[in-house]
Amino acid sequence: MFEGRLLQGSLLKKVLEAIKDLVTDTNFDCSETGIALQAMDSSHVALVSLLLKDTGFDHFRCDRNLALGINLQNMSKMLKCAGNDDIITLKAEDEGDTITFMFESPNQDKISDFEMKLMDIDSEHLGIPDTDYQAIVTMPSAEFQRIVRDLSSIGDTAVIGVTKEGISFSTGGDIGKANIVCRQNTNVDKEEDQTTVEIHEPVSLTFALRYLNSFTKATALSPQVTLSLSKELPIVVEYKIEKMGFLRFYLAPKIEE
């Protein structure tokens, strides 16, 4: 059987909110090392990769590898019934066709069990090679969210450029143009307000703002976001999940015609 008890249940709620509009159905791959998920959006432009390590759970048991086929909208409906401070336990039998979500209130005076039907999903896993990216930028996640939202009101695509001075986001549309530059900034008080640029080669790529906007639904998971770029490769937008792992989004660039 599989069982995972997560003291900070709100993390799971936030993960679902971040991916439920991008991916419809996906397998949660459970093994003794944790829970992993890889899924593409329906148009095969973006890919989501989630890792929740066993060590981040208060209790974790997985007797044999299980692929739990889940409709994310339905799972989100179930998790919305959990309080933000609730402890969430996931449970599934090896041969079962359901998953149980147990919610415990912080002072243990309310225990709820929600049972959800699983589905059979033929998953297509893609191999993501280890890549030395030409540019890696870490910046406040709220700042990235704001920039992407602001640019979306002006254009459909954004050119993201990284030089050793910083990262720039540019767009254009019927009403005009916009260009935002965030410079490397490591002498701020709080580490989470820093913008750091690690660069081997300047890089500039064009992406659909609609997808970048969707990724920023993960902002609540982490105060910082890491953007990794290389010429002619998908951008990686990574939100680290404290003590547990990460939520990564890969987005294919626009290609010159």
Partner: peptide
């Protein structure tokens, strides 16, 4: 603006 790339053309199926 360019054509939208497909993620499967960058990462091979396992």
């Amino acid at each position: 603006k360019g054509a939208q790339g497909n993620i499967m053309s960058f990462f091979k199926k396992k």
